[in-house]
């Protein structure tokens, strides 16, 4: 699937929720269910410093696609991180760099991307794109 198709899929999933509680319960479940990073990569080097919740992110290039793994100490952030990985991971550097990520607005979670949320998610997206750029330049 393309990045846009995955985004649309997520938007459809979120359309089923009636209220904020179901939405957040879903995010919390996503956050709980995902062992998303290998412990060896959970270091200060991979730590994206947000003001409040900490996010660790690791990436590698496999067969021309960037694979991301990540973790956070806050469960809601972790749920958001899981969504970002589902959308961006396993795509080419070009696709990742061009991704608009409009789905965040469509599912009503833009507040998590405003700089004041300080939850490290915005920094994480920036880092994901920077990593993609770096892989593009290497190859």
């Amino acid at each position: 699937m393309t990045i846009e198709e995955i985004e649309n899929e997520i938007v459809e999933e979120f359309e089923m929720f009636d209220d904020w509680m179901q939405k957040y319960e879903y995010l919390i479940d996503l956050g709980k269910s995902l062992p998303i990073i290998d412990e060896q990569y959970k270091t200060d080097n991979t730590l994206i410093k947000g003001c409040q919740s900490r996010v660790w992110m690791h990436s590698e290039l496999k067969a021309g696609n960037v694979i991301y793994t990540a973790d956070s100490d806050a469960i809601i952030t972790k749920g958001m991180v899981a969504l970002m990985i589902r959308v961006l991971s396993n795509h080419t550097p070009d696709e990742i760099m061009n991704a608009k990520l409009n789905f965040v607005e469509k599912i009503g979670l833009t507040q998590h991307l405003s700089p004041t949320r300080s939850n490290g998610l915005l920094s994480m997206i920036k880092q994901m794109k920077l990593d993609a750029l770096a892989y593009k330049q290497i190859s």
């Binding site: 003001c51 409040q52 809601i76 952030t77």
Partner: peptide, 22 residues
């Protein structure tokens, strides 16, 4: 076992403004 950020996020949904963090 809970992160202050998560608690603050849920409380915000309920219209309750608290501060979380350091």
């Amino acid at each position: 076992g809970l992160h202050p950020f998560d608690i603050g996020t849920i409380l915000d949904q309920l219209g309750i403004a608290v501060r979380t963090g350091h």
